[in-house]
Each structure stands twice: as structure tokens, then as C-alpha cells.
Design a protein around this nucleic acid. Structure first.
Lengths: 193, 193
DNA sequence: GTTGCAAGATGATGCTCGTCATCCTCAGAA
DNA sequence: TTCTGAGGATGACGAGCATCATCTTGCAAC
């Protein structure tokens, strides 16, 4: 069943995308080579034509998960200012995002796993957090620089914390209430009324 | 090597404590029965004299991890008011807490694992989050009730988020900066200056 | 002191998973 | 059209793990 170069590249991308999604929903430990390949429509044998080891796959998939997940903040950055900030908060703290980690923010999705690894995933993670903090600080640019940095740190922490907690809670009253409360608190905050 | 009732109870407690610690540092998947028993000074065989299955152990250990970790907020509640709030924020967002999840807050430590389970751990988790929110809201009691609820939601989310992110970052400049920034932002916040 | 019972040790079993050796089959060059 | 290289399939191996059967040993009741 030999394949062309284009087909191989497509397969490689497919495996990576699926791995990036599964890592966010099931964690790094939850990623099994055989399952992954089956989900890609292949069998386990061909895996090592694409990656040297599972460890290498995890490193690449973690990076991809982080980059894909960063489109949250990038999209918000496009709008800019207070409106972009509000859009980011509403989209991030939605039930949809809570219930679909596989296509969600990587900073929240793989934090626990990165904390338990000593591999290169930590480097990718750090870069992504830096970028995320910078973008949010820009959205809050009306304040002076130090204030913006602090507010960005608080915002990002609250976003990640709320999503992390509500994912553990599942879909319930407190879960929904926590999301709406944090949304409200974040949006009324930077304007010290 | 038969043991007395007291000895059995002590062993049971020891296993549970170790499991509660390991769950927080290595995750639920990282808990191996043989390793756990070895750490307790025993071999794997005796495990089933204490627990029906690993699943049951995990359920009990998760609950214990949550209760042990709740002493953060309980201690803060003892002081009460603005002082208790500041103490909680400083202790929670310390490098020590970041670097020692095994003895830290369970809400942050096992969130990702609970999100991936459908077992009874979710019930314990929900109860603990409720209690945590209530205690923090009490600390902010100067505000009216709705405000206090929103502020508590923001505070708890930010605490958990910051610890989660910084654990993934490890010990680095951004990690330390994020901790100090969130500490400062949280402490200057409820007093709308 | 004798005996029954249960904690804990030892070893076995079966499953899951990562990895590799080997075979098959088609894309692309000659 | 033929040949060859590589993508992918199949099957096997070994490690790690949860679980259980069985044996040993000391506590507790008589």
C-alpha cells in the first residue's frame, strides 16, 4: 500500500493533530499508540515510520496542542482593547470550552501533564504562557505597564483556574455558576468603578 | 507476621495517606499498587486485605487528598477577614506550595484527574469546591452577598490557575513573577481603591 | 499452651502497551 | 514495463501492572 510523499505528509499531520487533541482530553498518559493509529485509520505498526518513539510524539503533539490552543488569545487580540478582552473572557469561560478540552486551550489542557514531565514540553509551555500574558496585557494597555502585567497575570490565572475547576465539576449548577461569576468578575474588574 | 487490630488500622491509614500524597503529585494514573505498598514498607500482596480494588482506593484517597488540602482555607478562616485573606493568598501562592503538590491543595492537585474520571471522586470534589468558595466568600464578607460570591469565584479560580500554571512552568523567572503578580493583584483587589 | 483467623509475603496469571522484526504493496524513477 | 524503496500491516516480544491463589506467621480468644 505504498504511498506518495504527499500522502505521507498528510498522514504525519493527521497523527499529530489527533495526538494533540487526545493529549488535551485524556492527558499524556492516556495516549496509547495503538488507539491513536486506529483513530487515524491505520494500525500500530506504521507509527515508527513517523516518529522515533512515543516520547518524541508527545513532545511534538504537546507543542501543537499549545499552538492550536493559542488561537483563543490571538483571535481576541485581533479585536483589541476592551471589546477583545470581553470576547476572550466570554469565549474562554463558556460551557463549550469546558466540555471540549480536545479543541481548547492547551495552557489549561496539558498543565498537569507538563508539570509531571521533565521533557521539552516545558519549554513550549513556557513560551506559550509568555505569549498569552503579553497578549492579555496588551488588551489591558490603558493601564500603566506594571498594572497591566499584574492584571494580565490575574486574568490568565483566573481563566485557566476556572476552566480547570469546572472541568472537574462536570456540568452542574455550581459549575455553571462559577463560570458566570468569574466572567462577571473579570469583565467588571479592570475598570475600577 | 500477623498484626493486631490497631496495627491493621495504622497500616490502612498509612496506605491512604501515601496514596493521597502520590495522587496529588503523580496523578491518579501514576499510582501503582506495588509502588504504593513498597512506600508503605509492605509488598503488593497485602493490598487487597485493605481495599477491594485500586478503584476503591483511588476514591478514598481522592477524598482524603481533598480534605487534607482544605486545611489551607480552614486555617485562613481562623484568622478571618482581610488578614486571613492575605494570609491565604500568600501561603497558597508560595514557591513551597508550587513545589510540593503532594501536601498541597487537592482542588488544584487532582482537578485534571477528576475531570477524566466518572467515579465518586467528582462528588467529593464538588463538595470541597463548595466549601472553599463559601469560606473565601466569608473572608470577603464586607461586600454584599452577590459581590462576595463573584469575588470568591475569581479568587479561587485565580489561586488554582496560578498554581496549576506555575507547576507546569517549574521554577523559573516567569514562574516566580506570575506568583508575585497574582498575589499582588488579589490582595489589592477587594478594596476598590 | 493450643488453635483459629487474618495480615502480609510470594509467586503466578492475564492484560495492556511500547517497540521491533518482518512481510506486503504501491509510487516513482529508469 | 520493470525494479526498488518506503509506507503501512501483521505478529511477536518484553515490561509493567492489577488481581488472585496460596503459604506463612504471629495475635487473640479459650
Amino acid at each position: 500500500m505504498g504511498a506518495s510523499k504527499a500522502a505521507k505528509a498528510a498522514t504525519h499531520e493527521r497523527i499529530l493533530d489527533i495526538a494533540a487533541a487526545r493529549i488535551r482530553s485524556d492527558g499524556i498518559e492516556g495516549l496509547a499508540v495503538a488507539d491513536l493509529m486506529k483513530e487515524a485509520g491505520l494500525t500500530h505498526g506504521g507509527f515508527y515510520r513517523h516518529f522515533d518513539s512515543q516520547e518524541q510524539l508527545v513532545a511534538e503533539a504537546a507543542q501543537r496542542a499549545l499552538v492550536q490552543g493559542s488561537e483563543w488569545t490571538v483571535a481576541a487580540g485581533r479585536h483589541g482593547g476592551r471589546q477583545g478582552y470581553a470576547n476572550l473572557v466570554d469565549a474562554y469561560l463558556s460551557a463549550t470550552h469546558r466540555d471540549h478540552p480536545e479543541s481548547g486551550c492547551g495552557i489549561a489542557g496539558i498543565a498537569a501533564d507538563v508539570a509531571r514531565t521533565s521533557g521539552p514540553a516545558r519549554t513550549s509551555y513556557t513560551r506559550q504562557v509568555r505569549e498569552c500574558l503579553r497578549i492579555v496585557a496588551d488588551l489591558l494597555g490603558e493601564l500603566d505597564e506594571d498594572d497591566a502585567e499584574r492584571e494580565a497575570a490575574l486574568t490568565v490565572s483566573a481563566l485557566v483556574g476556572a476552566i480547570t475547576i469546572t472541568r472537574a465539576l462536570g456540568d452542574s449548577d455550581i459549575s455553571r455558576r462559577l463560570l458566570t461569576d468569574v466572567r462577571a468578575a473579570l469583565k467588571e474588574r479592570p475598570s475600577k468603578d
